[in-house]
Simulated assay, not measured.
Amino acid sequence: MYRVIENHERVISALAEHAQIADPDEISRGKRRYHLTRDNVRRVMFILDGDFLLKIKGENKVLNILSAPFVVGVTPALDEQPVYLERIDYGKVSFIEYDLFWRLIFEKDIFNDAMSILSGQYSDLMNYIQLSKKNSHDEVISLIERWKKLPPHLKKRFSALYLIEHSSHLSKSSICRVLKELKEKGELVLINGKFT
């Protein structure tokens, strides 16, 4: 993980003079949202401070929680990416146009850092797609494994129920039933409903 953070820091630092501070593209129920495409132009976003939810458009499901420093939107795609950033409490984000980003990556000889970031984002996406969804029990287990890896400051902020409910299509009752079963078997420990 440390190596990946270094990659994000190096890319952000190397391209900082070319980035612009991003204003929210939309504010919904007090939540500030930032899109990876604006006016048909793709953008790479730099999370400079704070924590952001990476959410799926339309469904508004949480794909991941990203903390500064983090670079988002480097993956190649034929269509507009179906994700957006949503600021949690506070945070600062800047952006650079996608084509300019890749041109500067080659000019500044930081291709290895960019490829490490790209590889990490691809792996995250594959892990999400491969979540076990045979039944609610298996899906909850997979999501517990995913969300248990959050940094401690985020584990304290979000309950296990919130994370699982907002990253799946399961009902609260189905999630609660599985969480209760796992706690009774001693296979899961939660403190005030949150991961330890």
Rank of each mutant, 00 (worst) to 15 (best):
D138V: 03
L163H: 05
L170I: 14
V178M: 03
P152L: 03
E181P: 08
P152D: 04
K172W: 04
S123N: 10
R177C: 01
L179H: 11
C176D: 11
K148N: 15
K148F: 11
S116K: 13
L179M: 06
L143E: 04
M115G: 00
K133A: 15
S159L: 07
L161V: 10
H137Y: 15
S119P: 10
Q121M: 10
H137S: 07
D124P: 07
D138T: 13
L118Q: 11
H169V: 01
L182V: 09
Y122W: 14
A160K: 03
L150T: 14
S142D: 10
L154W: 00
L161Q: 08
Y122T: 15
S171A: 12
H137M: 08
P152W: 01
L150Q: 10
K183Y: 06
I164V: 15
M115E: 04
S123V: 13
K149Y: 09
K134T: 14
K155M: 09
N135C: 04
K134F: 14
K156N: 03
S123T: 07
I129E: 13
C176H: 11
S132H: 13
S119D: 14
S173N: 14
K133V: 06
S136T: 12
Q130D: 08
S116C: 09
D113E: 15
Y128M: 10
L118T: 15
F158G: 05
N127V: 05
H166E: 03
I144H: 01
I175Y: 00
A114I: 05
K172G: 09
H166R: 08
L179Q: 00
H169S: 11
L131W: 09
S174P: 07
D124C: 09
R146I: 07
D113H: 14
R177A: 13
I144Q: 00
I144C: 02
S174M: 05
I164G: 01
R146D: 03
A114H: 07
H153N: 05
K172D: 06
K180C: 09
F158H: 04
L154F: 05
I141E: 02
M126I: 11
V178H: 06
E165D: 03
K156I: 02
K149V: 14
K148P: 02
S174F: 02
